[in-house]
Computed example of a mutant assay.
Amino acid sequence: MTDLSAKGAIVTGSSRGIGAEVAKVLAAQGAGVVINYRQKAPRANKVVAGIVEAGGRAVAVGADLTSAEGPAALVDAAIENFGSLDVLVLNASGGMETSMGEDYALRLNRDAQVAMLEAATAKMGPGSRVVFVTSHQAHFIDRVSTMDAYEPVARSKRAGELALRDFIPALQAKGIDFVVVSGDMIEGTITATLLDRAEPGAIEARRAAAGKLYSVEQFGAEVAAMASAEVPTGHTEYVGGAVGFLEN
């Protein structure tokens, strides 16, 4: 098992789902983890309690990444509680919500990702790593069409990835790696549920095309692994392959 003892980590959007699974794995490897939530404090506190009961270190911090103060609050929490910030997992995403405004997807999936990266890397030292979590549907959106209900989110996430990649030269100069993890539709996520509701049969159709869809737990473990995997900066890890995407 990777040893992340004495390391500090932030996992955005980690009060449930993939982010929570990533946080649990990093904590099991010794990292102190900042669990980020926007509104659901009890859910985040439950994740923290589980980590602590298992002998790990974690703290829950409420922060809206689209606000001016949100990213800084997470960075400060990592430094104050764990002494350093060595791993940043940019997992939080969204945009299918109907009550957050027409530009919410772009504000969260691009602008907030950049703001979080800038706030974090100002405090991260050589040997640190940033991991950006995306989907095949977003990563390949300029080459492969996706479901109508997901396209605005996919395009905003792709815009976020490209904006983050623009920072790679500056990050390399500081000795900070940047890695992308791209996954297919994930069973059990709120996004998959909303898509299947908008377009009934979407999950089954994608499962048939891909041969297998990862569970939240399986994908979370793969994301966590990329926090310390020996890959070059700028690398994209296609979890489970990318059947139907790489061929185009």
Rank of each mutant, 00 (worst) to 15 (best):
D177Y: 03
G211D: 08
A72T: 10
G94I: 02
V52Q: 13
D196Q: 12
A44M: 00
V48Q: 08
S128G: 09
A31R: 07
M116E: 09
V130S: 07
F140A: 09
S135W: 02
A78I: 02
G241P: 04
P42C: 05
T98V: 05
I141C: 14
A224K: 03
G220L: 01
T12P: 03
R38Q: 15
V114L: 13
R207A: 11
F219H: 08
R38Y: 04
G94C: 08
G188F: 01
L88M: 11
S93Q: 11
E102Y: 00
E161G: 07
E151K: 14
A225R: 15
A78H: 00
A205T: 14
S93V: 01
D3Y: 01
R155D: 08
G244N: 11
A154K: 09
L106I: 10
A105T: 02
D166M: 07
H235I: 01
D142L: 14
T236L: 15
S145P: 15
Y150T: 03
D142W: 07
G234E: 08
S5W: 01
F245Q: 07
I203V: 15
A105P: 05
A225V: 03
V47P: 07
V34P: 10
S128N: 07
S128D: 08
A41D: 08
T189C: 13
P200N: 13
Y37C: 06
A31W: 01
R129S: 01
N36C: 03
A205E: 15
V11W: 01
K123Q: 15
A159K: 07
A9Y: 01
L194I: 06
I168V: 14
A115Q: 15
E69M: 11
S135T: 07
E21T: 02
M124G: 05
P126K: 09
A115Y: 03
G55M: 01
V243K: 15
E222P: 04
G125V: 02
M226S: 10
S67Y: 09
M100V: 03
A154I: 04
T236G: 14
A54D: 05
V22M: 00
A60Y: 02
Q39D: 13
I176W: 02
A23D: 02
E53D: 13
D103H: 06
I203K: 15
R158T: 04
A27I: 07
G50Q: 11
P169S: 09
E80D: 11
S99R: 09
G94V: 00
S14M: 05
G220K: 00
M1L: 10
A49G: 08
Q218L: 04
L26G: 03
P200Q: 06
T233C: 08
V130Q: 09
Q218W: 00
A112N: 12
P71R: 11
Y104Q: 06
L4K: 14
M116H: 06
V47E: 07
L74E: 11
A41H: 02
V87Y: 03
V153N: 15
H139T: 08
V89Y: 04
E161Y: 13
V75A: 11
Q113V: 07
E80N: 09
M147F: 12
R110P: 00
A242E: 05
M124C: 03
R107H: 12
T236P: 05
A73H: 11
F132E: 13
T146V: 13
L213R: 08
G220S: 04
E53G: 11
A58I: 04
V114W: 04
L195W: 00
R165V: 01
